[in-house]
Simulated scan of single mutants.
Amino acid sequence: MNLLTQHISASDIKSLEHKIQRFQKEETFKLSHQYQFNSLTTRELEIVNLLVKDLNNSEIAQKLFISRLTVEQHRKNINRKLNVRTPFQLFRYALAFDLV
């Protein structure tokens, strides 16, 4: 049976519509936040990558060979530049900009 003759259920169509809507929202977010994301330094991007992998400040400091206080300062800068206040908001950036 080829793809054209297969039966597509209503639930399959709803699922596909939901995925398309989610993709559209993510792309809209990405386009409207590109400037903020581009303002991050290379080091800040490294830290975002490690944060979304659930590493804490001390673990990030060890991994990057910097002090915990330096990590905290980078995190403050990241939060300010991206205007994020929660881990979920930061994760949304990471998803939109393919960091995860």
Rank of each mutant, 00 (worst) to 15 (best):
I60G: 04
A61N: 10
N49M: 09
N77W: 07
H7T: 11
A61F: 05
M1I: 11
V84Q: 01
F97T: 01
Q34N: 08
L90A: 01
T5H: 14
E72G: 11
L64G: 01
R92N: 07
S9C: 03
Q6K: 15
R75G: 06
I47W: 03
I8T: 11
E26I: 07
K25T: 05
Q89C: 06
Q62V: 14
F65V: 09
I20Q: 07
T5P: 03
I60T: 04
E72R: 12
S32F: 11
M1G: 13
V52D: 01
K81S: 03
S15M: 10
E46D: 15
K76R: 11
S67Q: 07
R80V: 12
S9V: 05
E44N: 05
L40E: 04
R92V: 15
K81P: 00
D98Q: 15
V84Y: 06
D54S: 07
R22A: 13
K81C: 01
R80I: 11
F65E: 15
S9Y: 11
L99C: 06
A94D: 05
K53M: 13
T70S: 15
L55P: 01
N57M: 04
L45K: 09
A94G: 13
K63Q: 14
E17R: 08
K76Q: 13
E44C: 02
I60N: 04
T86V: 02
K81F: 03
A10C: 05
T41V: 05
L51H: 02
R85A: 12
Q34I: 07
S9N: 08
S15H: 10
R85Y: 02
K63F: 02
L50E: 09
E44T: 04
K19F: 10
Q34V: 05
F91I: 09
I13C: 06
S58V: 14
S11D: 13
Q89K: 08
R22I: 10
A10R: 15
A10D: 12
E59W: 01
Q89V: 05
K53D: 07
Q62E: 13
R80K: 15
N38W: 00
S67R: 10
S15N: 11
E17S: 10
F97L: 04
I60K: 02
I66C: 06
A10K: 15
D12S: 10
H33T: 04
R68C: 06
E27A: 13
R75P: 07
S32K: 10
K81M: 01
N56W: 03
M1E: 13
N38G: 12
S15D: 09
D98A: 12
I60Y: 04
Q36W: 06
R75N: 11
R43W: 06
N83L: 09
F23L: 12
H7G: 08
L50T: 01
L45H: 04
M1D: 13
K53Q: 15
V100D: 12
K81G: 05
L50A: 05
S67W: 01
Y35T: 06
S67L: 03
F65T: 14
K53V: 04
A96P: 12
K53I: 03
Y93N: 00
I47T: 00
H7I: 06
F23W: 08
D98I: 07
R43G: 02
K76Y: 09
H33M: 03
I78S: 00
